[in-house]
Write a protein that binds this DNA or RNA. Sequence first.
DNA 1: CGCTAATCGAGACGGTACGTCCAGTCTTAAC
DNA 2: GTTAAGACTGGACGTACCGTCTCGATTAGCG
Lengths: 199, 199, 199, 199
Amino acid sequence: MANKTAPDATRRSQRSRQAICEAALALVGETGYDKLTIEGIAARAGVGKQTIYRWWPSKGAVLLDAFTEGVQDGGGTLPDTGDLATDLKAVLRATVDEFNDPAFQAPYRALYVAMVNDSEVSAGFTSKVLEPGTRAYADRIRAAQEAGEVDPDADPELAAEMILSPFAQRWLLRSRPLTHAFTDRLVDQALAGLRPRRA
Amino acid sequence: MANKTAPDATRRSQRSRQAICEAALALVGETGYDKLTIEGIAARAGVGKQTIYRWWPSKGAVLLDAFTEGVQDGGGTLPDTGDLATDLKAVLRATVDEFNDPAFQAPYRALYVAMVNDSEVSAGFTSKVLEPGTRAYADRIRAAQEAGEVDPDADPELAAEMILSPFAQRWLLRSRPLTHAFTDRLVDQALAGLRPRRA
Amino acid sequence: MANKTAPDATRRSQRSRQAICEAALALVGETGYDKLTIEGIAARAGVGKQTIYRWWPSKGAVLLDAFTEGVQDGGGTLPDTGDLATDLKAVLRATVDEFNDPAFQAPYRALYVAMVNDSEVSAGFTSKVLEPGTRAYADRIRAAQEAGEVDPDADPELAAEMILSPFAQRWLLRSRPLTHAFTDRLVDQALAGLRPRRA
Amino acid sequence: MANKTAPDATRRSQRSRQAICEAALALVGETGYDKLTIEGIAARAGVGKQTIYRWWPSKGAVLLDAFTEGVQDGGGTLPDTGDLATDLKAVLRATVDEFNDPAFQAPYRALYVAMVNDSEVSAGFTSKVLEPGTRAYADRIRAAQEAGEVDPDADPELAAEMILSPFAQRWLLRSRPLTHAFTDRLVDQALAGLRPRRA
DNA sequence: CGCTAATCGAGACGGTACGTCCAGTCTTAAC
DNA sequence: GTTAAGACTGGACGTACCGTCTCGATTAGCG
């Protein structure tokens, strides 16, 4: 009923789809997001341009698909040793290491650009990658709350944001280095709050 | 140092500089960052393209200059009524309103894109706009700390990041609405921390 | 052979080719060769610049193609009334009129410029336009030679050059007016030679 | 009285004039006419652009000045041994050698381009360089005429054109090689004419 | 198992913007 | 008042991609 007859997904070439995703990831790693071109992806993938335009609306969408291809597990779950601070610190330290790896940075940063430009990609990336990540933290905090380790009035979702966002901003803006010390203090201060405690 | 002989800044036309900055801001508001073109800016400003290329390395840099032109006050200071929570909430509520204004969003969002792409712009924007903003919060928190309102072990800089970053992320990713309720709870939870308090 | 993969000529748009040639001729007539621009041709023809660059190496080459498009007959033949002088004079008088027509001058003069600059164009124009023209004269002279009207030792090719070149030079340099009297005397003197004849 | 106050020629820097002419000749030899730029000449001559624009209307005019600077003798005179054919052949052979010298070709060819484009340059070059050259030939032919060696009805000016123009055209169009044999036959045929002579 | 319609690789097309080069004008400071 | 220097507006250069469009040549699913 659309004026453009929709393509028949059952006939879609998985071979091409795969090649396009791989080419997109490879190229974005080599040249950065804004030098990533549809023509470049098509050439690298040995594919006609139309095959990309047929199935994706923008290069951001290709990148999102390519990125979520391998990471569709949904974000997973945080460990629960019974000590919230320890668990959060451990996971954040691992994440710090991941984000300091140049090979990982390029496509991830590219996706951020795509996202800020394009609210479709923004929605997709948020729901497929970011939300599950935040939820994993919130779940772990909620578990601690149920165990009495966390104030019942606290909002676990908000708490997750307060821990993850400073991390994300630092990485995104390269304003300050991402270190284990930083994430450790982040957890400590989120737990302790600013108000003085009576000994 | 530079292999291209640097232009003589003393002969620079302030008239053109002004016109370029205004055109850049106007256009980015009308069309968004990725449709912002050097040619467009030049045409709007009634200026030769070369005059832009002579003085700025990229459209991101132009935008940064244009943006910081009117906002060079350094971030200012937060009010101090003696009650930290009240002051933070008041300022954040105002900021929420500002960031929900579409007229303000476009250039600011554009700068974010420019920043993620270009580490030069990133450094400039961080040091000229973001750092002073964060410092204003940190200063207010430090003042509260000296007044005994905040735990002496807390880190005011980190506290400022924990309050501002969730705000920035929400705005950037459009993941959840920016409301006064959100920022109020943000302040409360930052102050209280997660750990339960003995009444 | 070529390092740039050659375009596929079978898929070439004849519509565009035609429009480009017409636009080039029209523009060169309106503005002259050095104000003729590829951009101008493309705009006038309603064509992308790349379509010109894909098929022609320079604006001179476009002009050559445009010019030879309508004149591919090969130069034709001169009339043969049995009297060489009469025939040569008649044809030259017609050519004088043609070259004094401003509408004809512009593209022809433009081609001369293109030619002097660019030896490719030079070769093309010479072989497609000038050689056939000269040959037509040489053929007529050879016919006269075979009829005993011309000295058997004379070189018809050279004779053609001696008649046509002074004509071309005068036109090219605008040094002296092109008149019927001039070409008449040219023919007479070429036939008679300089040496006195015992009558 | 002109709206642009004419520059005061008495204050003109001969130093600059000299440098500009030398730079123009050097550059045209290195890069060809159409890559010759006013900026390039100014830079090479260590001169401001305005100094060129003040004194010359176009790059063709500069080139013409530069070229005629060293050749202001007026064309000179042809030798007169009493045998016209011998004298003409000798001079033409020398000219052939000159025009086959690449170092001489470039600026001369450049001037031709300038000329075809620009009727001012055309007039200047014709009157300062070409006319005197042609006149020298015409004078020698006229002398022969007075000596009875040439038909009294022949036109020496036209005869000079008939000898020099084929030469010029061949060189200009690179259509055929310039050789001694060619110019020798040119002279012979111009003298003999086409019509058969009774032995 | 062959038919037929959609997808495929390829790439020409009309366009837009790029970043560079130069034209020709104007301004400044040195002489 | 001319000069060297060079910033200015303007515009064409030749290149790179955009997104659309046509081409055969596969290639899948249905008959």
